[in-house]
Design a protein around this nucleic acid. Sequence first.
DNA 1: ACCTGAACACCGTTCAAGT
DNA 2: ACCTGAACACCGTTCAAGT
Lengths: 213, 213
Amino acid sequence: VSPRKTDRPLDLATVVDAALRVADREGLQALTMRRLAAECGVTAMAVYRHVESKDALIDVMVDHVLAGVPVPDREADWRDEMLAFFLGAHALLVEHPAVAHIMAQRPLASTAATALADRGLAVLVAAGFDDDLAVEVFLALGSYALGGSLYQVGRSSWVRADLTRRFTGLTEEEHPTLTRVGANMADAVGDALFTGGLRRLIDSYATSLPAAR
Amino acid sequence: VSPRKTDRPLDLATVVDAALRVADREGLQALTMRRLAAECGVTAMAVYRHVESKDALIDVMVDHVLAGVPVPDREADWRDEMLAFFLGAHALLVEHPAVAHIMAQRPLASTAATALADRGLAVLVAAGFDDDLAVEVFLALGSYALGGSLYQVGRSSWVRADLTRRFTGLTEEEHPTLTRVGANMADAVGDALFTGGLRRLIDSYATSLPAAR
DNA sequence: ACCTGAACACCGTTCAAGT
DNA sequence: ACCTGAACACCGTTCAAGT
């Protein structure tokens, strides 16, 4: 809402930053071209100098965030690489709930996502997985990472207040177990929990790796 | 678009069916109160006799679909129950892409979801998991199921044409591995693939079950 | 009881115009 | 070159009115 400080002409980086700020803090539905323009201290149509449409802006937001995911390295141990890759992706999606929600709608739609998928698959193939199994491993880990990010985001972002109210408002007769372990559910340290499951999946696929070298 | 066949007054079931039909086939953004009303052969405001708001309608849609998930049984083997539970949920979410996308935004927000979570947790506790581990297992399997459903939905629903174009339009220099295994990626039989990863997660947690009985 | 129709405050986006 | 302002075809939703 704060008007722009400088008289410098608006540029794309400023627009994308503002868009992420609004969408991550207030939810994707709050990201309006008019609201975004106000955040940039400008009129709605000024934004269209830098993005073709709102959809194009959203693509740029995703690419910008995914640029922070550590690119897997074919030379290193595949398990370390996969762990670092999906932990990094998870951390970024939790930090940017709006991007998590966008990726939920089309997981591999962005150019950044396909580029990362290519490198990730390359690591698995280099490690000795055949093509079918490499795809299976990558999709399993990716599914888990996306779902885990969404769950954590659903608790930590702007809906948190609602959810806590939900869990504490449950009756013991209708939800005997959930009311008892609800505290664990609501307060579970997401990162450790997420890492645990990810490790289990990776270890499981390690036993399916055709004996190599 | 087809006008209503009968003169019977509109009821909630008809509205929910129509809403799922539109949202699953044409995407959530196509689900408009006016579009939905037209689908029911009625004016937009007539729908408001049966739902308080569009958000309330969406909640009802989720609950209606989740009613089809097989409720886990405390008495049976926990592994069979978890497998059937998440396979069932996955199948329903793939069948109803719109519901998958809604659940991505607030995984445990609906009353049906919390009810199912309660039963699922009860099965795990009955099997001998302590509260912390039961939560961990349930969230890991749930994350994987949600993410896997979203990935499959992203390929099989109304965005499929886009995605295939994406995968076939990639250049070999930029995506050497993805172009080679892209066919596997696009044509992978999602259900078998999904079941494989789910089994691995369940088996992994089985080894962490405190020795019982 | 059930539905319609006009209206309001919003959207994304187009187009002509300002400086 | 960069931005504004009015306008268009949409939204969800309110309210008064029809039968």
